[in-house]
Every structure is written in C-alpha cells, then in structure tokens.
C-alpha cells in the first residue's frame, strides 16, 4: 500500500472532554459526555430542544461551570484555569458564534470596529493595520468593502451572521463553537453561509463544535456527529453513517422524522 494517509492516530486531540456533567438541581443538563476533537475536525451535536446540547456547548465554551468532568484544551486543563486565562483564550484561540448575531455583535459599533475589537483586545494599536485586516475579513465573508463603516443595524440577517463570523475569526482561533449559526436565516442565505463556513474550516484548519437541530446542516458541515437525548449522548460516529445507518432508537426516530424535499 503506497498511498496511505499521514498517520493520524498519533497526533493529540485539540479538545478532550471526559465525563462532563451539569445538573440544574435534580434536573440533568448534560450527563457523562466524553469525546475528543482533533485539529481540523467539525463535530456536530444534534438533538431536540431540551436534549442538553446547549448546556453542553455552554460548559465547553466556559459560559457554564460543569459539576463533574474534565476538559483539556491543547494539553491544558480548562476547568483549572483562572478566569483571566480562560477569557483570554475566549478572545484569541477560541471563538463563539451565537445563533442570534445581536448576541455576538456590538450593534452600536461599525462593522470595521466589530471585526477589529478582538485585535485591539490583544494589543493591536495601529489603526491602519487594524482597518486593513478588518477590510480583508469583510471581503472573506463577502461583505462589500464600502460597508466597513456601517453599523450592523443596517445589515440583513445573513450579513450580520457573516459579520459575526468575521469578528470571531479575525484572531485566527483554532476552536470555534457555533450555536445554531444558520438558525434564523432564510434557506438561500443558509446555503451561502454553509458554503462560506466549509471553505473557512478547510482553509484555516479550524476545529468546530456546532450545535444544531438541523440535520441537513450537519450533513454538509460536520465530519462527526453526536446525538443527544435527555442530556446524554445516545449515539456518535461518522456523520453520514449516523444519518444513513442510525443504530439508536432515538436517532432512527430523529432521522425518519425529517421531511424529505
């Protein structure tokens, strides 16, 4: 065999999660979740409302503190980090794309300022450089250069979402959390965004954890899939395998419930 892939079994996961549990009193938020995420990998988390996928994402991204479990990022124990270090990670190496762009953007600040904020937060102090970089990123997310001084309030929903993505990716993060990024968008706008995300994932080697209830989105975007129900992971595997040959009763129900177009 001459053309085997580079051995990928020896490299280290970027994010390693084990036994992650979060309870809200007696109610389970998520329970005993474990997985590894490798560089360049897109992991989809699907499940219906209340399945624990949002709780899990909040725990992973540092917005919620889990009750039990371990999260290791790049060989560092995330839960043992001080808040300063965790928040620094949150604006350099990590990114978080909210479902509603209004939660992830500063609506009173121009598009350029929104993109430049993370740069300034890590010490960029040259206006011209910041502006050039902002313009470059607006271009990458297909926002016209002459909109750089407009506020997001003047943008359509799809543009706002793309701006949020540019704002997040400008510091070249390695791990991106996405919460229903295509949620509130028209179908045609969704497609454009999906295409954009795929290209960025591929070109930048991003690792992504994407929470959604839209199976079509994960089929096109995620390499691997985790199916959650009642706070637990009921099935995980290769995305197309989980969708085409689901093993768990719940996944079978989920897949068969999707309307065919």
């Amino acid at each position: 065999m001459t053309m085997m892939p580079r051995t990928i079994t020896t490299d280290e996961p970027l994010l390693a999660v084990s036994g992650l549990t979060k309870r809200y009193g007696a109610r389970i938020g998520c329970a005993d979740v474990s997985f590894d995420l490798y560089p360049g990998e897109v992991l989809g988390i699907v499940g219906e409302s209340g399945s624990g996928k949002s709780t899990l994402l909040s725990c992973l991204s540092g917005h919620l503190r889990p009750d039990f479990g371990r999260i290791t990022y790049d060989a560092r124990d995330v839960l043992a980090m001080g808040e300063t270090e965790r928040r620094r990670l949150g604006r350099t190496d990590w990114a978080y794309v909210h479902q509603n762009p209004r939660d992830g953007l500063r609506m009173g600040v121009s598009a350029g300022g929104n993109v430049g904020e993370r740069l300034m937060a890590i010490g960029a102090r040259h206006y011209g450089d910041i502006r050039d970089k902002a313009a470059d990123w607006l271009g990458r997310v297909e926002i016209a250069a002459d909109r750089i001084d407009d506020r997001p309030t003047a943008f359509s929903g799809g543009m706002q979402q793309r701006l949020q993505i540019a704002r997040n990716l400008v510091t070249s993060p390695r791990l991106v959390f996405m919460d229903e990024p295509t949620g509130g968008l028209d179908v045609s706008v969704q497609a454009r965004l999906l295409d954009l995300l795929r290209g960025l994932v591929r070109d930048l080697g991003l690792s992504v954890i994407i929470v959604t209830h839209d199976l079509a989105v994960v089929r096109l975007l995620a390499h691997r899939l985790m199916v959650m129900k009642g706070g637990r992971v009921v099935e995980q595997g290769l995305t197309d395998q989980v969708l085409d040959d689901p093993q768990h009763a719940y996944t079978q129900l989920l897949v068969s419930s999707v309307l065919q177009v």
């Binding site: 053309m3 085997m4 892939p5 990928i8 497609a191 999906l194 290769l238």
Partner: peptide, 27 residues
C-alpha cells in the same frame, strides 16, 4: 476503525461516485 480514521481514508485513499450528487447549494 474510528470515525476520524475513516475520514482520513476517504480523503486520501477511497473515492466514491454515487448515483446522486449531494452538494451545498450555490457552490
């Protein structure tokens, strides 16, 4: 095999021409 090993296999070694084209619209 682990899923990621299969992903690497598909990327480098194993091609598949199915009967149906499944792509992101607009590309």
């Amino acid at each position: 095999a682990a899923p990621r090993e299969i992903i690497a296999l598909r990327r480098h070694t194993l091609g598949y021409v199915s009967q149906f084209l499944r792509v992101v619209p607009r590309v």
